[in-house]
């Protein structure tokens, strides 16, 4: 690394810095995660859409009792939980990458990312909460 630190980049763009922030595999794992979660999501989301919209009666039969019935089984709880987290992290990471690509000013990038992370946390927390604390008797 010493060679790269010794040399300096010319004026127009700020100099490239290694070492301080660079030494992490974060981008590698994020790239891998997108591939793996994408594959799993194809299966989960298409399955979800098929069950909800096409299978006996389709969307007409969905009501409170139907949802309550599904979430009484741990299988559907886990399915929905995994789908929620994967979709949220996959989409959020995708948006993070897009913000990195297109937001040129540092402050714009900061605020866009802050809004993105806040909305991700909000949705993940409320979604997870509902799946685990759902009470079929309030109806």
């Amino acid at each position: 690394m010493s060679q790269t630190e010794a040399t300096e980049i010319g004026a127009p763009r700020s100099p490239r810095t290694f070492g301080s922030s660079g030494r992490s595999n974060f981008e590698l794992y994020s790239w891998l995660f997108m591939r793996v979660s994408g594959l799993v999501l194809v299966f989960l989301v298409l399955g979800h859409l098929f069950i909800m919209n096409i299978l006996d009666g389709g969307v007409q039969r969905i009501n409170f009792a139907f949802v309550a019935g599904r979430w009484s089984s741990p299988f559907w709880q886990v399915w929905d939980l995994v789908m929620l987290w994967l979709a949220q992290l996959h989409g959020g990471n995708g948006l993070r990458v897009i913000i990195n690509d297109y937001a040129e000013r540092d402050t714009t990038r900061l605020w866009l990312k802050a809004a993105l992370y806040a909305s991700m946390v909000l949705i993940l927390v409320t979604g997870t909460l509902v799946i685990f604390t759902f009470d079929p008797n309030i109806g």
């Binding site: 690394m1 790269t4 490239r16 290694f18 922030s21 660079g22 030494r23 595999n25 974060f26 981008e27 590698l28 994020s30 790239w31 990195n100 690509d101």
Partner: peptide, 17 residues
């Protein structure tokens, strides 16, 4: 491995779309 480390950087190969 040294070059791979450099390209593993935030601004390295993972930026490729």
């Amino acid at each position: 491995s040294q070059r791979l480390d450099i390209l593993n950087d935030r601004e390295g190969v993972w930026r490729c779309r």
